[in-house]
Amino acid sequence: MNTKILRGLIWTARVFVAGVFLYAAWGKILDPRGFGRDIHNYQMVSDGWVTLTALFLPWLELWCAVALLAVSPFRRSAWWLITGMMVVFTYAKISALQRGLDISCGCTGSDDPMTWMGVAENLVLLVPCVFALVCDHRWPTR
């Protein structure tokens, strides 16, 4: 594939994924209590970890998004972290649906209910993550 086109696709992936993560992080940062409730509803972590995760995770999303957008030495690290988060989030959603939990997704700080469509959205978002994780290293963009 033409290197110019490839770099364009990587740049688009960076902006798109960073935008999604900035949007998702902001709502959770503004409402850590609500996000904590969403985490607890998944019934996957104990109470003490829920509080720490509710405080920490939105900021990790935010700083990773910033690292993707900036001309940053941490961009590859950010791609690894974002791809890892997407895998964990997707697993959590599938697990909740399989256990029949009727809970809010908590994905973007909104109150959207948990659906298989949400799992599909995660999988779609994983595509640019994995693509950029592989390609942004070989054909770095500014």
Binding site: W59, W63, C64, P73, F74, R76, S77, A78
Partner: peptide, 14 residues
Amino acid sequence: ATCFGIVYLIAVSL
């Protein structure tokens, strides 16, 4: 450097 970046981003987020 990637590993250092991961630890750095996690620490800054914490």
